[in-house]
């Protein structure tokens, strides 16, 4: 049977995370007699998204459900919609974003199966690897469930190309449970690259001392075209908003270059960045654990190092 890929979007564009999940779906399909991959686009006025999804490599059909019930990705409505479609599919795959993490386990529960959370590798038709204990251990498992509900750790898979040409099937199966309603959103807007997909990330920790001091990081980020992240300590202290958090329970990133500034390197933070290609740590405490994972460590006060770095770039 086929695989259903949940397409995350902002009403205009397919989220890059979905393109990573598409690669995982393709790998799974190769173990399932090259099962077809269908992409589910649920939204309101989301024709542009459906057209983009039709180009995702490996996708043979887009199921497009355009209805006000899906204007916001409410878990209750998405769950009912997806569960209804799963009669025809043997697997549901989505990137492990906050949207998918919200509704995918609901679908699993209603289908009476366990979700397979944040896979980093596909080993067989029912075999996967996933990190546990903040990435300090890797679990290799086989699912005995007849349907697979899978979220994908996006840093572990390549981005699928957009060279396909799938057919688009419009479906109107609106479910509005109305038990939860959207009230408001405060989304960060920034001209910088998105944290989850940026090639370079520079993050600040408690050592930054204040939100104002993040200006030092911003200047370096501007020079490098980097996204800005933070440790939990910096977010908890109110220096930067929650969506900056990199770590076990925040965003997991694996850029080509990760620069950790004033971050001690708690295991919860390392969980979110240790798969980066090159890690740089700047910290005045030479015993900070961050240096154990850093390719290049600079023991220096960040308040002298950052301005100098900006100047030398």
């Amino acid at each position: 049977m086929s695989i259903l890929l949940y397409v995350e979007h902002d009403g205009t564009d397919v989220n890059e995370a979905t393109l990573k999940a598409a690669t995982a779906a393709s790998q799974l399909a190769s173990y399932l007699d090259n099962a077809e991959i269908h992409a589910l686009v649920a939204g309101q006025n989301s024709q542009a998204v459906a057209e983009q999804a039709a180009k995702i490599s490996g996708v043979s059909r887009v199921i497009h459900v355009d209805n006000a019930a899906y204007a916001h990705p409410l878990a209750e409505n998405l769950t009912q919609l997806t569960k209804g479609l799963m009669d025809n599919y043997s697997a549901l795959v989505a990137a492990a974003t906050t949207t998918a993490k919200n509704f995918m386990p609901c679908v699993a529960a209603l289908l009476d199966v366990m979700q397979i959370s944040e896979i980093i590798k596909v080993n067989s038709a029912n075999g996967f690897e996933r990190p546990i204990y903040a990435g300090n251990a890797i679990q290799t498992l086989e699912s005995s469930d007849d349907k697979l509900i899978i979220t994908v750790r996006t840093t572990a898979f390549k981005t699928a190309t957009l060279d396909g040409s799938a057919s688009i099937t419009a479906q109107d199966s609106a479910v509005n449970t109305a038990s939860s309603t959207f009230v408001s959103a405060q989304l960060s807007s920034s001209d910088r690259p998105e944290l989850a997909s940026a090639k370079i990330v520079i993050s600040g920790g408690r050592g930054m001392g204040s939100g104002e001091n993040f200006a030092l990081i911003e200047k370096v980020a501007d020079k490098l075209g980097a996204a800005i992240g933070a440790s939990r300590a910096a977010v908890d202290a109110g220096y930067v908003p929650n969506d900056y958090q990199v770590g076990q329970t925040g965003k997991v990133v694996a850029p080509d270059l990760y620069i950790a500034v004033g971050i001690s390197g708690a295991i919860q933070h390392l969980a979110g960045m240790k798969d980066s290609k090159i890690i740089v740590a700047i910290n005045k405490d030479e015993d900070a654990p961050i240096f154990q994972v850093a390719d290049y460590g600079l023991v220096e006060d960040l308040f002298t190092a950052l301005p100098e770095l900006e100047q030398k770039l």
Binding site: G127, A294, E300
Partner: peptide, 21 residues
């Protein structure tokens, strides 16, 4: 879920300290 193996993640090789910016 039948857990077949719980293993160590790939370790990062130790890096170097640099003297200055």
């Amino acid at each position: 879920h039948n857990v077949i193996l719980v293993s160590e993640p790939a370790a990062r090789e130790a890096g170097v300290k640099v003297a200055n910016v």
